[in-house]
Computed example of a mutant assay.
Amino acid sequence: MKTLEIKGTPRTEFGKKSTGAVRRAGNVPCVIYGSGETIHFSVPASEFKQLIYTPHSYLVNFDIDGKKELAVMREVQYHPVTGDVLHVDFYRVDEAKPVAIDLPVVLTGNSEGVKLGGKLTLSKRKLRVSALVKDLPDTVEVDVTSLGLGKSIFVGDLHIPGLAILTPASTAICAVRMTRAARGAQAAAAKA
């Protein structure tokens, strides 16, 4: 699993006034919770570009005044008008316990349905999974080689050793849709 290194500054004052001062200084208020003590800190807003605005999922190694913490991002709050990051929640990771995280889906192979003129559509970009940190992959790979026209792959069809998929089994991941060209080819083949 990919990791990022981020330095934070501890916060001792809370409330609207102190939080506003943190944001005016170009920082984002954050919190780490989970097993152990809750830690309130701030991080420069520029540090979050590589964490939030990416399709990848990361474990984050924090250095908060010399104290090391390993966490995953849980929730981000945005300003309703400007879209600026207002607050970020992180969940502390214990190496001996499973962690739940959203992993990006990567489609592999060349679908049979696409070869016949269909269009491959991705319905679910990320899946919620649970595993020990050492067993977490960077992505969830889905092989679409045998996917035919009008067929779909559901979460329940996936079986990945060492990984528990928390997304409901009835959720569609991808499908090959029938296009006009494929319908025309099918009709022409039926007439011949």
Score class of each variant (00 low, 15 high):
Ser57Thr: 11
His79Lys: 10
Val22Gln: 03
Ser57Trp: 01
Arg92Val: 01
Gly15Arg: 13
Val60Arg: 12
Tyr53Lys: 13
Val99Gln: 10
Lys49Glu: 10
Pro55Phe: 13
Ile52Asp: 09
Val28Gly: 00
Leu59Val: 15
Asp63Gln: 05
Lys49Asp: 12
Lys49Ile: 07
Gly15Glu: 12
Ile52Thr: 02
Ile39Arg: 03
Ser18Glu: 07
Leu86Trp: 09
Gln50Phe: 06
Tyr53Arg: 12
Gly26Phe: 08
Gln50Leu: 07
Phe41Ser: 00
Gln50His: 10
Ile52Cys: 14
Glu75Pro: 08
Val72Ile: 15
Asp89Asn: 12
Asp65Pro: 01
Ser57Pro: 00
Leu51Val: 12
Asn27Val: 00
Val22Ser: 02
Val43His: 00
Val22Tyr: 05
Phe41Val: 02
Lys17Ser: 12
Ile39Cys: 00
Gly34Pro: 08
Gly20Val: 11
Pro29Gln: 07
Ser46Trp: 05
Cys30Glu: 00
Ser42Tyr: 06
Lys17His: 11
Tyr78Glu: 14
Lys68Ile: 09
Ser46Arg: 11
Val72Glu: 07
Val88Arg: 03
Gln50Ile: 09
Gly20Gln: 12
Val81Cys: 03
Val43Asp: 01
Gly26Lys: 08
Val76Phe: 00
Lys97Phe: 02
Asp94Gln: 14
Ser35Cys: 03
Leu51Met: 03
Asp63Val: 15
Leu51Pro: 03
Phe90Arg: 12
Leu59Gly: 12
Pro55Cys: 10
Tyr33Gly: 12
